[in-house]
Design a protein around this nucleic acid. Structure first.
Lengths: 419, 419
DNA sequence: CCATTTAATTCAACCACTGAACAAATTGTG
DNA sequence: CACAATTTGTTCAGTGGTTGAATTAAATGG
């Protein structure tokens, strides 16, 4: 729990411009709330005052607002420390706002509910091959699953503060899915197709649904769920395509147009195999799942993506030589690309997620080898390569987390909601 | 001038935490000053009020403080627009604070003075081969040049608000140069060697000298000097090594440990030529100046880096076939690496700086070719490839600009200075 | 049991912004 | 040329939210 908010950067005032008088309280609500969220143990009002430089009077007033708004609760008194009146510990409320995370992928739908403390309260998954299904029908089914998750949240006394939908493709601002090749989607306007559903109706002015790239949301989930300390990392999602979420200084980097992370088309053999993107020698052609499956002798199996990864892990675990060679080669190609990225961005961590997560035991060694060979500063300060803490299904959790994170960053929007 | 501050992102409050009462004024000083800095034409107090949402009363009070602090001046009345009392235009003061930019490089020393408006008021360059010179002696000479520049600034009525030193190497926080291979420096503690010089003495609490990587400062300079609109770009400095400054969303990205930008060691031929870094097939071995010179038949010439670039440009301009081939090959290698970076980061602009600036006419075509072949989203939205606006000597100017930029972002630090 | 210590609240003071009224400076019109 | 219209900039009482000191609350320790 403590690690949840560990890594986020400083947020600028929501006005992003003039600082009006009321902004003072608005900003300090966020400051105090973040302090509570990032603390190792429940802090006292006095401790927050000492840590932030605000007076105890101000902190008390701010905390009163936060408690009244169900964002903060008083915890059991902490173990005794010495003389003096005992402090009353403050924690994030577990019964206030929650985030709804949704995911549409090639062979499953997922919905999950995360509360303010970062706990995953519900997680529903429906397996289904969605490739032959129209976008409208797929979103129909998703809406049904979302309604189920919402009902479960309401039974827990939680209030949904928003929802985030993860899609394996390029997403434009405003929820337009430009292209999701593996789903067969092109220019799908998600909010329009969901019109009339509770998901699409704004609740008290809070934007109801954010659509984002799967890799981005998975990286956000990893930022909160992973071990603290890594504020700049690459979260690689190896599915049919290879995507990456880039977190720099604790902030997700989306790119000039929101299309960052196309690591699958980094050239690793400039004169190598042609790629469907029109290029040549792209990483995807050497470390993509199709290539690994073919090299392992599973070319015609036509398995769903996550099943395929587990099948490969089983074979590798059993010592199948073709599979081991396939994974070693893929890992080396991945390592070459990652080494270039680390040289450029000076990252301290690389996370293997998506379909790579279960294959990490075999992919990690060649990746580490290439990094240590090719990264200039590797000798000074090592680069951590690890599997995703949330495993292969992190996008929905990451989406839900991004919703509650927004509440922590801008508590006024939540407090202004209803009372 | 208007473009100078065009691209910077929103700055978070300097407290980076609690918002105390006084912070209100502190923040609004910055808001109003930035508004004046980024405006196309000198704005009026009323216009600023309308644009920021502050009241005219507040803006007047803030502007009074800024004028008293010599950060802002009233301009000649703007051309008439209609009825009503004429507005008094506000501009950044050209006679207040200024930034001192310094550069130590292999074959020259440079110092320049930039005022608040972004104008380069002085620019001194001393050519000298600094490789055989000890770090202490080199910094001695630099201090002398800096003193000259400072004297020139004082004659103009300017007050230096700080200095920034560009070094071609890895710089640690606190001014320790870990490694500058081309200068032959290792673990050089710049502030310690400058102790006792006016450069090293803090003036009214303002940190006197910031040491930073040459590529980083050059990128910052390009951010301000270049055409507006490109907020995410890569500034590539092609010298003996190849470095890059990375600007994302208008902010320089330094990396987890401050060592970002080692684009020279991105693998472009994983099984290719061995590199002195221990890796294989690094970009530097295909697009570095040494390689280009050798391919052009100038291997033994031992020219200083900038002279070499101009020599190559002359040969290419004259149609020398070996040189043209060398540049085409280097450009292709560069394009492969850049395509990978653009795929990953979704940049809209790539700037060819340093030694690449004069060679841009020949390097650009192959780079553009590789980008259009290999970048997924190139069809949707084109990537601009252009030479550096500040040319090969942009690091010193960029450093000076970063100093005055800090004044604009945190005017209170300057105002609290002396009165 | 009381001095000591630390936590949290109360309250007058104060700072900076707010909003409205007012003064200043120009254009346009009869 | 006088006067209404218009826009800029300033003045001033009012207010929201922080400040700092005093006060109350609740524990420990001799």
């Amino acid at each position: 729990m403590a690690a949840l908010w560990q890594c986020q950067g400083v947020t600028s005032p929501s006005t992003a411009g003039a600082v009006r008088q009321g902004s003072l309280r608005e900003l300090n609500l966020a400051v105090v709330l973040r302090r509570i969220a990032t603390a190792d143990r429940p802090p006292s009002r006095a401790g927050i005052a000492a840590g932030t430089g605000l007076t105890r009077a101000t902190v008390s007033a701010v905390v009163d607002d936060l408690i009244a708004g169900r964002l903060v609760a008083e915890a059991e008194p902490a173990p005794r420390t010495g003389a003096g009146r005992p402090a009353r510990g403050l924690v994030l409320a577990g019964d206030g706002p929650a985030g709804l995370g949704l995911e549409v992928n090639v062979d499953y739908l997922a919905a999950c509910v995360v509360d303010l403390t970062g706990a995953v309260r519900h997680h529903l998954v429906r397996r289904a091959d969605l490739r032959p299904v129209s976008p409208a029908d797929a979103l129909d089914r998703l809406a049904a699953l979302a309604a189920e998750a919402r009902a479960a949240a309401v039974r827990d006394g939680l209030t949904l503060a928003g929802a985030a939908l993860a899609v394996p493709g390029l997403v434009d601002g405003g929820g337009l899915v430009r292209l999701a090749p593996n789903l067969g989607w092109r220019d799908v306007d998600v909010p329009a197709l969901l019109a009339g559903r509770p998901l699409a109706e704004p609740v008290d002015g809070i934007p109801p649904l954010v659509v984002d790239n799967e890799a981005n949301l998975a990286a956000l989930g990893e930022l909160h769920a992973g071990p603290p300390g890594s504020t700049s990392f690459l979260h690689i999602t190896g599915e049919i395509g290879i995507g990456a979420g880039i977190v720099l200084d604790g902030t997700l980097y989306r790119g000039a147009r929101g299309w960052s992370g196309e690591i699958g088309h980094i050239p690793v053999q400039p004169q190598g195999r042609p790629c469907r993107c029109g290029g040549q020698g792209c990483l995807e052609r050497y470390a993509g799942q199709e290539t690994i499956l073919a090299a392992a002798g599973l070319a015609g199996a036509d398995l769903p993506a996550d099943t395929a990864a587990i099948r490969l892990a089983d074979l590798a675990g059993a010592g199948d030589p073709a599979t081991l060679t396939a994974l070693a080669d893929a890992g080396t190609a991945l390592g070459v690309a990652v080494a270039g990225v680390v040289n450029l961005l000076d990252l301290d961590t690389v996370v293997l997620g998506g379909g790579y997560a279960p294959l990490a035991p075999w992919l990690r060694p060649p990746v580490v080898t290439e990094i240590s060979r090719r990264v200039l500063t590797a000798a000074w300060s090592p680069v951590t390569v690890r599997p995703a803490a949330l495993g292969a299904r992190s996008a929905a959790v990451g989406g839900a987390t991004s919703v509650v994170r927004r509440v922590v960053d801008q508590p006024v929007a939540w407090l202004a909601r209803s009372g």
